[in-house]
Amino acid sequence: DEEIEKWIETLLKRNISLRVNGKDLEIGSEEFKEWVEKFIKEV
């Protein structure tokens, strides 16, 4: 979905790490990609 890709790009540009389930996810890491894929499937 384009919306999500733009959102991810924005996050990448800002180099933010997300806190997911109490863990810091490094943007661009494998864990982050897995989380994004799960997130996309749920939406």
Rank of each mutant, 00 (worst) to 15 (best):
D1L: 14
E2D: 12
E3Q: 10
E3P: 07
I4Y: 09
E5W: 15
K6Q: 07
K6H: 09
K6L: 05
K6G: 05
K6R: 11
W7Q: 01
W7R: 02
W7Y: 04
W7M: 06
I8Q: 01
I8V: 05
I8K: 01
I8G: 01
E9D: 06
E9Q: 12
E9S: 08
T10K: 09
T10L: 13
T10N: 11
T10F: 14
L11N: 00
L11D: 00
L12R: 08
L12Y: 05
L12D: 00
K13H: 05
K13F: 10
K13S: 11
N15E: 05
N15V: 15
N15M: 15
I16N: 04
I16V: 09
I16A: 06
S17L: 14
S17W: 11
S17F: 08
L18E: 00
L18W: 05
L18F: 09
L18R: 01
R19T: 05
R19Q: 05
R19N: 04
R19K: 08
R19G: 02
V20F: 06
V20G: 02
V20R: 05
N21Y: 07
N21M: 08
N21P: 02
K23C: 14
K23Q: 07
K23S: 05
D24W: 12
D24E: 12
D24Q: 12
L25C: 14
L25E: 01
L25G: 04
E26T: 09
I27Q: 03
G28P: 06
G28D: 07
G28A: 07
G28N: 07
S29C: 09
S29Q: 06
E30I: 12
E30D: 10
E31N: 06
E31V: 06
E31A: 11
E31R: 07
F32D: 00
K33W: 15
K33N: 10
K33T: 05
K33C: 15
E34Y: 13
W35Q: 01
W35R: 01
V36K: 03
V36Q: 01
V36F: 10
E37A: 15
E37T: 14
K38P: 00
K38N: 06
K38G: 05
K38L: 07
F39T: 03
F39N: 02
F39G: 00
I40E: 01
I40S: 03
I40H: 03
I40N: 01
I40M: 08
I40F: 11
I40K: 07
K41H: 05
K41F: 06
K41R: 12
E42K: 12
E42W: 15
V43A: 09
V43E: 03
